[in-house]
Design a protein around this nucleic acid. Structure first.
Length: 424
RNA sequence: GGAGAGGUGGCAGAGUGGUUGAAUGCACCGGAUUCGAAAUCCGGCAUACAGGUUCUCCUGUAUCGGGGGUUCGAAUCCCCCCCUCUCCGCCA
């Protein structure tokens, strides 16, 4: 959520920055709503003040044993207008709030302008894609002989699910454990285990709701209370600080969580239908930080580096992309995507997304910190995939495949695989 | 699932319709005392929003788990919901 003060003070400026990310802000409508709000609110508060003081004087008069009927008569006249004003104000505020919740974050000034992913900017590249002296297979074909089973998954649940058996399931588990261990041991994150079902408040806090309900899976706790399956650990982990005022000295808070993620993938029919790239359910290790505002851009670089470290340890070639204004997520002010090399597709594919949300999520969540005796201040939130486990599995299968159909295990991962150096 | 108790400020904990945004204690901040510290004493100390003033405040409104209701007036009464604790049952 944007700062409403910013909207009031610099509506046109906000509109033009939003335009850069392809969002049209109806400034005339907002200005009109704002003018109406101002007069309604002033009038309502006036009436409330009058009622309060009259009510108070009734109490005083009664205590003295005086006759209160004249005051009662006076206050009775207020009732209808006050109620009408209160109702109108609350309707207007609901409307304004709904509008505000639907406005995306402002892009940081360092974000390049652009329409879509074609205009993202490559920042750096790491590793050399391997030269194969045989015909490379994609992960589906390689995995078929190693326990990657889409037919069973289709029987159980339909399309966009996978069953892993044997060594490949083991590899999947090892990857998650490896990532968790690196982030906790080397990068200073605290491991957290969190619920996979969360309420609507949590989804609103991080920005998935109200706009993107169709991307989520939901279930019902009872007839009128819906719970959502998390599309990323970002949701439960970031919401740990919702409605909290944390001591300034406790920042930065650094959390890492390994969770399954559930996405309906509505609107992506036909895209990445083959294989494990785009699933309804996948595992991800997510790193999250809550920091002071002045630190958040330094931390974005640091956090992205933590995700890169996993790719480097695994020896997977990747490139780091700075997303342009038109390709960023709804809540983000600046995002780096890490794209891993997939030889069978002969291209780089997203495996991590690292974002600084500045105070956008914190404002929705009322997540604040207090330094000394200063007033509470909104903190900044960041997160990144460190990494998407399923896609990392795909990358290893494809990059470490051998001519005989076996797959080598990256050196760094072997301690998590009981020393196994090859799946066959 | 059954029975009972409870949710109040950073924390603990009073408060069952009327100058209560809320006693008291702890914590915290400023000052006094002290060579300095502890102890003691004095004062301050919630959040959001609006209006005024504009870097310092003033005024108003809302907020005592959430929502709705009664009333001139609700932390306090009524209804619904959520959560926590204790006991019993069930259970990975």
């Amino acid at each position: 959520m944007l700062d409403i003060q910013l909207l009031r003070n610099d509506l046109e400026g906000v509109a033009s920055r939003l335009k850069a990310r392809g969002f049209d802000l109806d400034t005339a409508m907002i200005a009109a709503l704002e003018a109406e709000r101002k007069s309604l609110q002033t009038r309502t508060q006036e009436l409330q003040a009058k009622r309060n003081s009259l009510s108070k004087s009734i109490g005083v008069a009664k205590a003295k044993g005086e006759d209160v009927t004249p005051i009662m008569a006076e206050v009775a006249g207020l009732g209808d207008e006050l109620k009408a004003n209160e109702d109108a104000l609350s309707r207007l505020q609901d409307k304004f709030n709904a509008l505000l919740m639907g406005i995306p974050n402002l892009p940081h000034e360092s974000v390049p302008a652009g329409k879509d992913s074609d205009e993202n900017v490559e920042v750096s590249r790491w590793g050399e894609p391997r030269k194969f002296d045989f015909q490379v297979k994609d992960h589906v074909d390689i995995g078929a002989g190693l326990g990657l089973d889409f037919e069973s998954a289709a029987k159980l649940s339909g399309s966009r699910f996978a069953v892993l058996k044997g060594g490949i399931a083991r590899l999947h588990r090892a990857l998650a454990q490896f990532m968790l261990d690196v982030h906790t041991r080397e990068h200073g994150y605290i491991e957290v285990y969190v619920p996979y079902l969360v309420n609507a408040d949590s989804m609103r806090g991080t920005g998935q709701l109200p706009k993107f309900e169709e991307d989520l899976f939901a279930t019902f706790k009872n007839a009128d209370e819906k719970l959502y399956l998390i599309p990323t650990a970002e949701v439960p982990v970031t919401n740990l600080v919702r409605d909290e005022i944390v001591p300034g000295e406790s920042l930065p808070l650094k959390f890492v969580a390994h969770t399954p993620c559930f996405r309906s993938e509505a609107g992506s029919y036909g895209r990445d239908t083959r294989g494990m790239i785009r699933q309804h359910q996948f595992d991800k290790v997510e790193i999250v930080q809550m920091v002071k505002p002045e630190d958040s851009y330094r931390v974005l670089e640091e956090l992205t580096g933590h995700a890169e470290a996993i790719l480097q340890k695994l020896g997977l070639p990747y490139r780091k992309m700075l997303l342009c204004t038109g390709d960023m997520g709804f809540s983000s002010a600046k995002t780096y995507d890490l794209e891993v090399w997939l030889p069978a597709q002969n291209t780089y594919r997203e495996i991590s997304s690292c974002s600084n949300f500045e105070s956008f999520q914190a404002r929705r969540m009322q997540a604040r910190f207090r330094s000394d005796k200063n007033k509470p201040e909104l903190l900044h939130t960041l997160n990144g995939s460190g990494l998407a486990v399923g896609r990392t599995l795909v990358a290893i299968l494809e990059n470490y495949q051998n001519a005989d159909g076996s797959v080598s295990i990256p050196e760094a991962l072997r301690p998590w695989m009981d020393g196994v150096d090859k799946l066959s």
